[in-house]
Amino acid sequence: MTMNSKPALETALNHRSIRKFTQQPIEAEVLQQVLTAGQMASTSSFLQSVSVIRVTDMEKRRRLREICAGNVPNGHHYVENCAEFLVFCMDSARHHHYAPEAQTDWIEVLLTGAVDTALFAQNVLLTAESLGLGGVYIGGIRNDIQAVSELLAIPPHVVPVVGMCLGYPDHHPNQRPRLPLSAILSENTYQLADGETLAAYNQTVHEYYQTRKLDLTWQQQIQSSLYAELRPELLAYLQKQGFAKR
């Protein structure tokens, strides 16, 4: 089949998360190409510390949706309804196959593996979007990472980092406004954005959410995300899997 992709810049600038999908399946060749594009992402020390689990078993999908939704009844319906659900894993199991004494319990290995996984997944999503697909990252698989590991038979030295729904979009949501470039770009030394810039952006986000009938600011979103425990069981899980011990 012929695949016509949009330019990279156009694709990146038009990104938005898609949570409603048509029933159209993703052609096998298209899926293979977007995953191959993921493999071509940069990888620290050529370790290629990523594996992907394609979840096609609908009972597993149902259970994953429950985990991701947490306390929201029937939430995250798109985990079940998307054409493809992928789980991106940080993987050092292959390293231990080749080098049984590999010291993969250092924090640095955890960081480089997480970076590799993120780069791989972003290549997949960007390529998928360039081909007319849409998707959304699903961090909710870490709501109960042990249950996800058992469901997907994940061995030691492997960690499921993030899920991704992919499919053909059935809606076209407005794009969420990002921070102005001036707020994130420094030169030579770190510079925190000034209060006026941050206040203006907070108002911009508020106005965006009002179009969605929500009374919410970026400040409130930060507070709701960072004023509580954040999956405190993760450290013990990571150490059980052989990571983050030193």
Rank of each mutant, 00 (worst) to 15 (best):
M3K: 09
P7M: 10
T11H: 13
L13I: 13
N14S: 15
H15L: 04
R16D: 08
R19K: 14
Q23T: 12
Q24S: 11
P25G: 08
A28I: 11
L31S: 09
L35V: 05
T36V: 04
T43C: 06
S44Q: 02
S44K: 01
F46C: 04
I53K: 11
I53E: 07
V55H: 10
V55A: 09
M58H: 13
E59N: 09
L64A: 05
C68Y: 03
P73E: 06
N74E: 15
G75M: 11
N81K: 11
V87Y: 02
V87F: 02
F88I: 08
C89G: 07
M90P: 01
M90F: 02
P100E: 08
Q103V: 06
T104I: 10
E108K: 02
L111H: 01
G113D: 05
G113Y: 05
A118E: 04
F120L: 04
F120S: 01
N123F: 03
V124F: 09
V124M: 06
L131R: 03
G132N: 07
V136C: 15
I138N: 00
I138H: 00
G140S: 08
I141S: 02
I141L: 09
D144N: 15
V148Y: 08
V148L: 09
L151Y: 13
L151I: 13
H157A: 12
C165F: 03
H172E: 15
R176W: 01
R178T: 00
S182E: 15
L185R: 10
N188F: 04
L192A: 15
A200T: 11
Q203E: 14
H206D: 11
H206Q: 14
Q210H: 07
L214R: 15
L216E: 09
W218Y: 15
W218S: 12
S224E: 14
S224Q: 15
E229N: 13
L230V: 12
L234I: 14
L235D: 13
R246Y: 04
